[in-house]
Amino acid sequence: MKQIFFEINNRLKLIVLELQELTLFIGRVIRSLFRRPRYWKDLFDHMDILGVGSIVIVLIAGCCVGAIISMETLFQLRSYGAQSFLGRVTGDSIVRGAGPVFTAMIVSSRICPATAAELGSMQVSQQIDALVTMGIDPIRKLITPRIIASLFIYPALTCAHTVAALLSGGLVAELSGELTLMRFLRESLAEVSSGDLLWGLMKAVVFGLVVVTLACYSGIRVSGGAIGVRKGATRAAVNAILLILFFDFLVTSIGRSF
């Protein structure tokens, strides 16, 4: 019994220490956002990697998601004879729900493990120590540009994903013979207010901020060679997906209560 309490105590201590480290890390990141020097080239490089590198996959995913939502919704609405509502229902689901979540998941599954592995291998090979000894803050040089890039690119990719999803959803409606593409788009957009659009974009900003920060944290905390890098990358990928779902729930509950 004593052993169990001892074990629980140790685990709790580790969790508290990890939370403390994470809080300190977030504090340093926030501070570094407002301090010079700014690494513009690194910022544009990360915007390129995150944005241009993800755009094709995001558009393909957007087309698939829009088509699936449209088909499934049509199937449900048909049983009530309410096919004419297809545009309204689908538009709302895509803009407020599926768009930001799917974009964040796709981009994060591409970026988070890669970020954690890159920073982790830099940590393991003492490249981060080298930066520190050169008087260069690794947070400012390596992490801040990634976070700022995510603030701009996640919403931009969400917009691209949403447009692709709406177009493919409309195409499904057109091909099914229920609605024309133009009517589908008109009704979808009529149902979506500017508040909904803003809400979707805000979700994207929150997702980007949270998952990229945590991926950087997983990377910079790596220790113990190749296995440590693998663990860091895995942790970053799993945390990203779970956090997106958790924050989606959180933001949606707050949004729907207003």
Partner: peptide, 9 residues
């Protein structure tokens, strides 16, 4: 300045 054992390049 420090020269690390593995270079840290």
């Amino acid at each position: 300045a420090i020269v690390f054992q593995n270079g840290a390049l």
